[in-house]
Design a protein around this nucleic acid. Structure first.
Length: 270
DNA sequence: ATGGTGGAGGGTCCA
């Protein structure tokens, strides 16, 4: 039995619906997690998703900024939203997916704050917000007593590239927000304390460069390849042995009017 | 060292 899940920071779901539709028609993941939908709930383009077989959804959006969504071919239940840092941002949603073989998987979909430009919380409150956010994420664990027997997957735009090979130049990015030690150490601590497995790095060795985002501010993004791995797929330990592949669709960055992030898909065989 | 681009919304803010 198979199960697949995609995470994609879409940077406006309404603007990029044609790209989403063509991606889904070919990749056909069971579950699609979107970030930066920039779309209030009552304006979310549900119809095209239904038409493609994504009958089930849990959305959490607001006007102009942020916004996350889970679209699913498989039934979902118990959708929840948590207001991290208590400021009303729509940056988290989760739901339990009824996966094949009677498996139940709690899927968490995150859009972590980018953190601004200056990596110093005393002069840049956005950086402080980001650090507080990832601290609070420690409450989201791969295994919980309350949902015993439920596996877990955490995906999203975490806006941190934790490994040296997750950026085009470790040395040149050490003081750049997304790759500063306080962020990368915080993310790895979070991963370990929550008992999460980094599925992208289980599939692609940590020695190899791996990126999911390339800035809009570089026209030759492909040749210069100054990317970062900001998007992640983590799972509880029980799912890790069932991972078949992780696909980072780099080609999507070259599509017409693209998102600056590309879709990442994990496929499992149970 | 700096600025470069893109989306939302109709100011600038955010990334």
């Amino acid at each position: 039995m198979a199960f697949s899940i995609t995470t994609w920071n879409i940077n406006s779901v309404r603007l990029r619906m044609p790209l989403v539709e063509s991606f889904l028609a070919s990749a056909m993941p069971d579950v699609l997690c979107l970030q930066e939908t920039k779309c209030p709930n009552d304006a979310f383009p549900m119809a095209p998703f239904r038409k493609l077989g994504y009958e089930y959804s849990a959305i959490h959006g607001q006007k102009g900024y942020h916004g996350v969504a889970i679209l699913s071919k498989l039934p979902i239940e118990d959708d929840q939203r948590r207001d991290f840092c208590n400021i009303g941002d729509t940056r988290h949603i989760s739901a339990i997916v009824d996966a094949p073989g009677g498996r139940r998987i709690r899927v968490h979909n995150f859009y972590v704050p980018a953190g601004g430009d200056e990596p110093d919380r005393s002069i840049n409150p956005k950086f402080g917000h980001k650090l507080d956010f990832i601290e609070e994420m420690a409450c989201i664990r791969a295994e919980t007593e309350r949902e015993a027997g439920v596996s877990a997957i955490l995906v999203g735009d975490l806006n941190i590239a934790p490994l040296e090979t997750d950026v085009w130049s470790h040395k040149q990015l050490l003081k750049i927000v997304s790759h500063t030690p306080v962020e990368t150490e915080g993310l790895i601590r979070l991963q370990q304390s929550g008992q999460w497995v980094d599925l992208m790095r289980q599939h692609v060795p940590p020695e190899e460069k791996l990126f999911t985002w390339w800035s809009y501010r570089s026209k030759e993004w492909d040749e210069s390849d100054r990317g970062r791995r900001l998007d992640h797929i983590w799972s509880s330990a029980d799912l890790a042995p069932d991972l078949l592949s992780v696909d980072v669709l780099r080609a999507a960055r070259g599509w017409e009017r693209p998102s600056d992030h590309v879709p990442v898909t994990a496929r499992f065989g149970f």
